[in-house]
Every structure is written in C-alpha cells, then in structure tokens.
Amino acid sequence: MKNYFLILIIVISFLSCQRENSEFLGGSLNDQFGELVVLEPFKSNTANFNFSIVSPRFFEAQWSKNLNWSLSVRATQTGATKTFTGYSNKLDIDNASWDGSADDFPSFMKDDVCQATLTLSDSDTIIELTTTVNVSEIKNPQEGLKVVADFEDGLPVNSLPFVQSGAELTVTENSAAVGSNYLHLGGYVPYDYLLTSIKIPVQDMDIFSATSPLLLYFNMATIGGILGEVPANQFIKIIIREDDGSNLSNGEKYSMEINPVNWDTWQLFTLPYSDFVLESAPVNNLREPGKINQIEIMCLSCPAESAPDGPTCPENTDLIVKTDIDFIAFTQNESYKP
C-alpha cells in the first residue's frame, strides 16, 4: 500500500507540470525554404488617396511566407517617394498605411499620380508587383508648423538679398522641394568665400515663446549639384537672430553650417534650435524661440583665386556653386515631415 502511495506521488509530480503551448520552435521552415507565391494581389484600399481627411489609406497584399519586403510609392510628376519596409507575409492597415508624407523632399503634390511597387524577395525568387494611386488631396499642415519662406510668391517681403559679382540669387520655377518655386543660390565668385546671402524677416514667433529650444526644429530643403560640376566644399551658413538686443539689429545671433552641400537631390536639413551655436556677443546667452526675428542664409564656397582671409582652392576653378534652398520652416516637438 505504501508503495502505491509513492507511485501516486510520482505520477502527480509530473502531471502537475504544464508547458506553454506554441505552434513550433524556431524560425518557420516555410519562411526559410517554402515557395514564394502571391496569394492576394497587390492593391490599394482606394484608388484616390485624400490625405486631408481622416480615413484609412493603405495597401494590401498577401503572399506565402514571411520575408523582408519593400514598398515604394513614387509620384510620376514630382518624383516624390515614400518607402515602406517590413518583415511579414502580408500588407495591411497595420504595416502599409500612408499618411501622405514623403521620405524626403520633394513632397507629394495634389493630383500626383503615383506608382506603387512592392518587391518580395527570398533566397531564390524576386517578385515585383505594381499598382497605381492618385493623390486627390495632400496632407494637412503639420501641427506646430511655422513656414518662414517657401518662395512660391517670390522673395519674402522685406527680405534683404546680397549678391556678389558673379553670384546668383533667383527664385526659380520647376523641380522645387515643395510647391513650384525655390531659391537658387550660387554662381562663380573666385575671389571670396561668400557668394550670396539673404536675410529673411521672421514674424509671429510668439507662438513658440514657451517652447524649449530643444523642441523647436529649424527645417530647410537644400540641394547641391552633381559632384564634379560643383565645388566639393561648397556650403551653407544659417544665422538666426533674436530681438533681445538694445535695438532690432544687435540681438544675439546663433549659427549653424551645412558643410559640405554635396548631394544632388532635395534633402531635408533639420536641427533643434538648441544645437545652434552663439556667434555674436552674448546678451543673455539664452536661445529664446519666441524672440527669433530674422534668418540669414549664406551661400559660401572656397574661392578658386583669392580670398580676403583664409586659403584658396584652385581645384574649384570654373566650378559653378549651387546651394539651392526651399521651404524654410520651424516645427515644434519634431522635425518637419515632407
């Protein structure tokens, strides 16, 4: 009888244990070795994407295995692109919802016709699927956005351009980062670092009075030229002025350089105001977003022949500087979403 009691204890001891149930251990063999087959066709949930209203806008598809996929949406007119990536066996509202933003400048525009391409690839198969969607309305302005200049109506009112002989500062149409126009800065000035600059007044910054400089972002679209055709060391200097001086013109100045500007597609330059460095004599040495009253953009490059101060760069001889800009704006809490 005592033996049976012991046996009972043993039986109870292993019956009392339970394991968590999982489907299987490790990565799926189907994902590693299974055949890649499209199960549901690639499509958008609606043909026209209206980003100005709250409604679901996403792409759908399903295939036979989990894999790394890539979805690229490209506007045929503006060249704006939006890319999605992931690891799954389907596209749905959770992983392929689109809010109308682009990866970078240029932004999508109203009535853009976009081709969406889904690329599925495993170790031995690559499948590309395409569909088309139209942008019926662009996304609403980002919350906390303050546009300083978009050059759609020419130079901003009361802006102060400075152009050296041989330099160019012109509002140009076509292929803008946002909208239709952008500001071309460049030219050939072999005798000075500074080619051209523009001082743009900034108004109504009181809305950022309570914003920390850590959370106020300066944003600007920039584009250089094809390397070899432009100086490799061309650059932009940004000076932000505050009105905390004794008069309007002697407030604190904070600056930042984009050096070099060596890319040939529109790119977003974005930085918290707190990263700008003091360049003038200090007044209170505090970055105060609410007191910003001017932004100066300077186009610079190492001169090929002579310089008032500093070295020269003979390798820049006959190379035309190009540091175009567009869409200067401040945003709160996060960078601008093109």
Binding site: R19, S22, E23, F24, L25, G26, G27, S28, L29, N30, Q32
Partner: peptide, 8 residues
C-alpha cells in the same frame, strides 16, 4: 519531438 522545429 514534443513540439515541431520550424513546422508543426
């Protein structure tokens, strides 16, 4: 096996 490896 108690649980499949990579498959059910």
């Amino acid at each position: 096996e108690i649980i499949g490896t990579g498959t059910t």
